[in-house]
Amino acid sequence: MDIELAVDAMLLAEHVDHLVLFSGDGDFRALVEAVQRKGRKVSVVSTLQTQPAMVADELRRQADFFIDLATLSGKIGRDPHERTVRAVDRGPAVDDNDDED
């Protein structure tokens, strides 16, 4: 999967001004650098809030911008109470995955 992401990012870099990478994997540092050499900005979205941090320090430093997921929780996260209520409203879980085809 890492190779596919890197190939896609390099292809997309020809058509975008700014790439956003949702990963903390330090193996992507070279990819970020390669995209930057093409004159593109790169944001890395991951978190420093866990122990250990889920973002490699070298990836965070290479990025033009680092966005901690914790700062996005109010914008993209659900209210925990809402999740509980919705789960109760749905009733028992149903497995729609029919593997008998």
Rank of each mutant, 00 (worst) to 15 (best):
D2F: 05
D2L: 05
D2W: 01
I3W: 07
I3V: 13
E4V: 12
E4T: 11
E4S: 11
L5R: 11
A6F: 06
A6K: 05
D8F: 09
A9M: 03
A9I: 11
L11G: 00
L11F: 02
L12N: 07
E14C: 08
H18S: 02
L19T: 09
V20F: 04
L21T: 02
G24D: 06
G24E: 10
D25L: 03
D25H: 12
D25F: 04
R29V: 12
L31C: 06
L31N: 04
L31K: 02
V32I: 10
V32S: 02
V35C: 14
V35Q: 05
R40L: 13
K41P: 04
S43C: 06
T47D: 00
L48Y: 01
Q49P: 03
T50N: 10
A53L: 03
M54D: 02
V55P: 00
V55T: 04
D57E: 14
E58K: 06
L59I: 00
L59V: 01
A63E: 00
D64Q: 01
F65Y: 13
F66I: 08
I67P: 00
I67R: 01
D68V: 03
T71L: 06
S73G: 04
K75H: 10
G77H: 06
R78K: 11
P80G: 11
R83W: 10
T84C: 08
T84Q: 12
T84P: 00
V85D: 15
A87H: 08
V94N: 03
D95E: 13
D96W: 08
D96N: 08
N97Q: 14
N97S: 03
D99L: 14
E100W: 13
D101Y: 05
